[in-house]
Design a protein around this nucleic acid. Structure first.
Lengths: 201, 201
DNA sequence: ACAGATACTGACCCGTCAGTCAGTATACCC
DNA sequence: GGGTATACTGACTGACGGGTCAGTATCTGT
């Protein structure tokens, strides 16, 4: 023991991600997180004052960075905006729908939004607002270059990724009643969006 | 007291709807439900064995009936399928996004899906499957009569209402960070769907 | 090799709340 | 008006788990 001062936080965070992902926020036990990290319960509290703070650390450490990668990709895109959407939307599925940790974060944000008012604001500012801006740019570029119609989606572009969120919800909630066919869902989604935006004259 | 045997269940159910809607499933206290119903805690348990059972009773009593009304409307629709969608989609918003009770039910289903495995199956069978069938019929009819393209949406038609779900989630989770402009969102949604399905030759 | 600082431990504390049940009040029938 | 069934009550129990802290181990500098 001891001397681990710098390694500990990361170890505990990793253990927490696993425990939270498997059991959700409410179901996760601090003692179980400690056990996974090979540490006593009290030690967890040396680094994170509350269960909430531990959860917030996960969001800050693991969610924000991912978005920056996607967002960087957009800036360098050489092809058409339609092709870009066909690239981006599946990305939402692999990052949100198919990723245990991020699905769990989403579920927690929904379930415990009262408890995490602060975190919801953080998520909104760091993820939702930038995502909207990114999508808005894509749509506007498409309108400008004649690919897309001048549609109200340009004002409320997050509507474009709504079905992806719904797929994630389905997976969390109804998977045992009926398995989601992610690929089929994604295909329908992309097709709808592409044709919904396309300019027709 | 006494003699209320037939009135009690409905009174308690109503009180439970209010308490659950205001505080969510986890935050709702049986004692508070009892107080609202003007009854002692023990009395609640004479009619509903557990908190879960009480919640299930709400879903069974209040959710299924609504769907039947919407679904009936579709059968009698005289106009175009496009016009029908323009009628139906806003309906999803008033029934799900703008209704406290149903938003709370949705949130609970998501948050407590493990606890309510049985109920999730019920909801799937009674709501989701019929909703999908209804939407599938609309899309197919539209394809048949030349209004719509033959799109993959015909196979996964729930994608069409995905953005509505997302709006409900936003309202539950990020309302305090940024108020959802439901009408604007709805307009973008309907526009996307209508143009996404439209046949163009 | 000693002292003080730092890291860690885990038994315990404590608030919460779903669910129970012995006791009380009311209705109903003869 | 007495006796029994039925409805209701609310103090209590028991499980749970987040958070605490007095005690122990290890490290570090001199």
């Amino acid at each position: 023991m001891a001397k681990r001062r710098q390694a500990r936080p990361a170890e505990i965070l990793q253990a927490a991600i696993e425990e939270f992902s498997e059991n959700g926020f409410a179901g996760a036990k601090i003692e179980a997180i400690a056990a996974r990290a090979g540490v006593a319960k009290g030690t967890v509290y040396l680094y994170y004052a509350t269960k909430e703070e531990l959860f917030e650390a996960i969001v800050r450490d693991r969610v924000s960075p991912v978005f920056k990668i996607v967002s960087g990709m957009v800036k360098l895109w050489p092809g058409s905006q339609t092709a870009l959407l066909k690239q981006i939307i599946p990305r939402f599925y692999s990052e949100i729908v198919e990723n245990d940790m991020r699905r769990m974060i989403l579920k927690t944000l929904i379930s415990e939004s009262d408890r995490f008012e602060q975190l919801a604001k953080f998520y909104h500012k760091e993820i939702l607002v930038p995502a909207r801006k990114m999508l808005k740019n894509i749509v506007r570029n498409g309108i400008k270059n004649g690919e897309f119609r001048d549609a109200p989606i340009a004002i409320e572009p997050l509507v474009l990724v709504g079905p992806a969120l719904t797929a994630a919800i389905w997976k969390m909630t109804f998977e045992r009643a009926e398995k989601l066919d992610t690929k089929r869902w994604l295909d329908a989604h992309v097709d709808l969006v592409v044709h919904g935006l396309k300019k027709v004259n």
